[in-house]
Design a protein around this nucleic acid. Sequence first.
RNA 1: GACCCCAUCGUCUAGCCUGGUCAGGACACAAGCUUUUCAAGCUUGCAGCGCGGGUUCAAAUCCCGCUGGGGUCGCCA
Length: 424
Amino acid sequence: MKVRFAPSPTGYLHIGGARTALFNWMYAKSQKGSFVLRIEDTDLERSKKEFLDEILESIQWLGLSFDEIYKQSERFDIYRKYADQLLKEEKAYREGEAVILKMPQKEIKIYDLIRDEIVFDTAVLKDQVLMKSDGSPTYSFACVVDDALMEISHVIRGEDHISNTPKQVVIYEALGFKIPKFAHLPLIMGEDGGRLSKRTGAVAVSDYKKMGFVPEGIVNYLMLLGWSPGANQEIINLKKAVEKFSIKKINKASAVFSIEKLKWVNTQHIRQMDLEKLTDLIVPLLKEKGYLEAEFDRKKVESIVNLFKGRISILEDFVDWADFAFLKEIDVSDGDKEKFFTDDAKKRFKLLADSFEKLEVFDIKLCEESFRGLVDELKIKAADLVHPVRVALTGKTIGPGLFETMAIVGKENTIKRLRRAANL
RNA sequence: GACCCCAUCGUCUAGCCUGGUCAGGACACAAGCUUUUCAAGCUUGCAGCGCGGGUUCAAAUCCCGCUGGGGUCGCCA
């Protein structure tokens, strides 16, 4: 068997398109068939190379490898040839330069893997343009000719194509081509119940990449929209998903895209990722932000990443939440200064800095011992000192464990930041 | 409007085919725990079969209608 994904390079790869590609790919892999990528660039005006490059890059980033690739713009003479054949057989006629198919009056039954039989009456259909006046083929015509010639056995596409199907079946029949099986995927809707659009949020796969989503997370979330691996399992990788995949189990109803759940799925994948790989993904972001020089201490960065791994949902979170580990000086908001840097707290910062000065080794364990020693001495609760100190060291009220944080900040900077906060 | 598709917690879903298990899980939300916070983790809770008819001893599940939502009606793809 063979399936195809046929994007049009008139825009970036849409999140819905990515899911169509994903289901095609999973079906191909699960059936040991092949996956064709066909670029539908018949609209010479609107097709752009930058979009094509972006689509290719996104598909590759998502990990959806393809076996063959075609561009419709390189196949115009093929479409012309079949149009001429229909003209000769008088199944089509000319109107100026355009070639138009006569619509036969009949009932068309299509078989859909997801919806079973769908029946249409061509009486409501008009004659179909096959070749436009400018010599380029229409979508349906090129699509049918290519699907037949490329021996596509299953056409898996969005539900918005259901009404195109009877028109295309008429073309298949006119050309004497074998009709493939169809599977129309439910559409993805925005939170407002309408079509997923820029107004509802980001729609391009590349936007999600920029935000710091990982491909494993995107792919996992997308497959959950209309399909389920079963056994109450949700977090799954592509390989396992392919093993469990069944096109018959795809839902008929459209699904609402939830960025919240996407984030959660992404969090789970980041958590599962090994430290090496996660660090590789984060380092470029840190460099871009100016937090790292060309030369840097890789082991130290890894230990910082490790501290936040499991709590970040997108890579950007790390850059925002761990900035204190890279910046020379940190900022504390006026509100936090007022709330946490009380006169008592400032005195304690000095005392803490003094006791840290005495430490030979500044590690998690010794930091904690020293810290708790002071807390006992002052007869206060640990929390009373923990929170102000966290703000003094990181500029944030929340974060990983305080002693791990201190070890990351280091003895010198910890003391410096404590003394600075004491004088604010 | 015409044609087509669809309908389980707010959202994603399991269950539907082959009627009979308190309708299961997840996100979100709420509460509690974790006394070193939460944006992490754990526990608990909240919440659903759109409506009306049938068929049946029995309907989320099968049938019909209604309502609601979506899609398509281009020499765009």
